[in-house]
């Protein structure tokens, strides 16, 4: 097994708080919701499992062998579909048999296409790499049933990608802007320079 500290990307001397933050960031990054419609969903799941295990083992080590705590509850997978009209299609999508899934879906007559049908079409196209089509289908599913958590999660995820704000990747803070951190650093530097000349910037 890999060194759990390496998995979380922290040093062995890190504080509990630092470890928690690192774990939370990684869990946000590899959360199954981010990869639900991706052909790499299974790899993301493995990664998530690795992070959960690393966090658990660090917690155990630090508590000096006290009982194991499971963290999978909060950041686990939620791939159990309780109510579905298309169990075979879902099975094919999970197995990566996209053409078979598409064939089944296309066989559904136009009049009886539910919100779930549009959602599953979105899943097939998203996994195929046809993002534009996927976006249109997810949007339709969401418009038909806005209160369904599965459909709204898929649609919101798509919108986050179209704005390039991926959770855990800090994509929204890059670019030409100036963050609060930059301002602080700038002020600190200015303060140092001012101190050299005998004054204070603030």
């Amino acid at each position: 097994m890999k060194n759990p500290y390496e998995v979380l990307g922290v040093s062995e001397n890190a504080t509990d708080e630092e470890i928690k933050t690192a774990y939370r960031n990684l869990a946000k990054k590899y959360h199954p919701d981010n990869y639900n419609d991706s052909p790499l969903a299974d790899l993301a799941e493995e990664k998530m499992k690795e992070i959960n295990e690393a966090y658990d083992s660090i917690c155990d080590m630090r508590r000096n062998g006290s009982s194991s705590r499971s963290s999978t509850g909060s950041y686990g997978t939620n791939s159990s579909y309780t109510r579905t009209s298309y169990p075979d299609v879902r099975k094919y999508i999970t197995e990566g048999r996209l053409d078979d899934a598409l064939e089944l879906l296309n066989g559904v007559p136009e009049g009886s296409r539910s919100a779930e049908w549009y959602f599953l079409m979105g899943m097939v196209f998203s996994r195929k790499g046809w993002s534009e089509q996927a976006y249109n289908y997810f949007q339709r599913a969401y418009q038909m049933e806005p209160n369904n958590p599965e459909f709204s999660a898929a649609f919101n995820n798509m919108n986050a990608r179209r704005a390039y704000t991926n959770p855990g990747y800090n994509t929204d803070t890059t670019g030409m802007g100036c963050s609060t951190c930059d301002i602080c650093t700038g002020l600190m530097c200015a303060d140092c320079l001012c101190s050299c000349c005998g004054g204070r910037s603030c």
């Binding site: 991706s38 790499l40 790499g129 993002s131 990608r161 179209r162 704005a163």
Partner: peptide, 10 residues
């Protein structure tokens, strides 16, 4: 953005 996001996620 969508294409870039997917590349980054992968």
């Amino acid at each position: 953005n969508h294409a870039l996001s997917e590349a980054l996620l992968s």
